[in-house]
Simulated scan of single mutants.
Amino acid sequence: MSFNATLPSHQPNAADLYASAGTDFTKLNWFEQQWVAWYLFIDNPVIATGLVSFLLHEAVYFGRCIPWIIIDAIPYFRKWKLQPNKVPTPGEQWECTKLVLFSHFTIEAPTIFLFQPIAEAVGMSTWQVPFPTWQLMLPQLALFFFFEDMFHYFSHQLLHTPMLYKHIHKIHHKYSAPFGLAAEYAHPAEVMILGTGTIAGPLLYCYFMRDLHIITVYVWITLRLFQAIDAHSGYDFPWSLQHIVPFWSGAEHHDFHHMAFVNNFSTSFRWWDRVLGTDDKYRAYRSRVQAAKLAGQEKGLSAQELKELEDRMVREAEEEGVRAENEVVRKAEGKKVQ
């Protein structure tokens, strides 16, 4: 039964919505009952959806960042840090947090509160119960991951063109050794551009299929935030997902992008970079590091000497990245590249 066909033109309250839908509350599980109780408590679906969406985003984002802040503070974990000589200071983390919060409240919050009307316009379920089954949700989530990764790859490359990089994307590249909080450390325009890839997939899907619930979108947003924060964590553990799923991107893949400025434009997966050849420098670097380690082991170098060897190669890659970044900025300024 459609929203427009059953409800008056004015904005109905939650009780009207559930009454018009003929909701049988006796068949709901505990989570669905809490969902209904939330909408009845707020009594305005636009505000109810906006509030829970924003609170979810903040709780997931900072909740996922906290473990990485703790890990950064414990020296034991340095052996798994991709750039162990660059641990973020409390001051850097606080500076990053301030810009992230500014973007969240000035850019993302207004957008999130506009989501309910847009969602219902394309046929998305929001206040409705029961929730969708996992059998329905899983293929939807897979599609959203694929769409966002593709959108991000091409948008990210555009952000590395001279003018867009200098005026927008350069902020995100402030940290050559990223950390979890820096996942959304970006210019407001970049937040909107790349955020489009996250939400456009669900909206486009719903426009054509009309079987999407906002709960599925919340699961997607949670997974996407986990992916983005973990990719910026700066750590590569033996149990990290990229060692289990070979085509997963992960921190090891994205850390090179921040360190060397070039290559690895995807978010979740490695296939666009591999197919389109934008991981050539990354793969060459990994091969050099591996070959140098093997050669060092054959020469009987100590663990400390091997670490110093890898540190030197990291510095060389970063120096090349600085030169590449400066070249892009000079192009944006119309200066002759030396």
Rank of each mutant, 00 (worst) to 15 (best):
P90A: 00
P90I: 06
G91W: 02
G91N: 14
G91E: 10
G91H: 12
G91Y: 05
G91F: 08
E92C: 11
E92S: 09
Q93Y: 07
Q93D: 04
W94L: 15
W94D: 07
W94F: 14
W94S: 12
E95I: 05
E95P: 00
E95R: 13
E95L: 10
C96K: 01
C96E: 00
T97N: 01
T97Y: 02
T97F: 07
T97P: 10
T97M: 07
K98H: 12
L99P: 02
V100I: 13
V100T: 09
F102M: 14
F102R: 12
F102D: 13
F102Q: 15
F102W: 14
S103E: 05
H104G: 03
H104S: 11
H104D: 13
F105A: 11
T106H: 05
T106Y: 06
T106F: 06
I107Y: 02
I107T: 13
I107L: 01
I107F: 02
I107K: 02
E108C: 05
E108T: 09
A109M: 11
A109G: 03
P110Y: 00
P110G: 04
P110V: 01
T111V: 07
I112A: 11
I112N: 01
I112T: 13
I112F: 12
F113H: 11
F113S: 08
L114C: 13
L114A: 14
L114P: 01
L114H: 06
L114N: 11
F115H: 03
F115E: 05
F115A: 06
Q116M: 10
Q116S: 12
Q116C: 11
Q116V: 03
P117Q: 03
I118M: 08
I118N: 04
I118V: 15
I118E: 06
A119L: 03
A119S: 14
E120V: 14
E120Y: 03
E120L: 10
A121R: 01
A121T: 01
A121G: 01
V122Y: 01
V122H: 10
G123W: 07
M124R: 10
M124W: 02
S125K: 12
S125V: 00
S125W: 00
W127D: 08
W127A: 15
W127C: 06
W127V: 08
Q128K: 07
Q128P: 13
V129T: 09
V129M: 04
V129C: 01
P130I: 04
P130R: 07
P130C: 10
P130V: 10
F131S: 14
F131M: 07
F131Q: 04
P132W: 09
P132A: 13
T133F: 00
W134I: 11
W134G: 06
Q135H: 06
Q135P: 08
Q135S: 13
Q135Y: 08
M137L: 09
P139G: 06
L141A: 14
L141G: 12
L141E: 10
L141M: 08
L141D: 10
L141S: 07
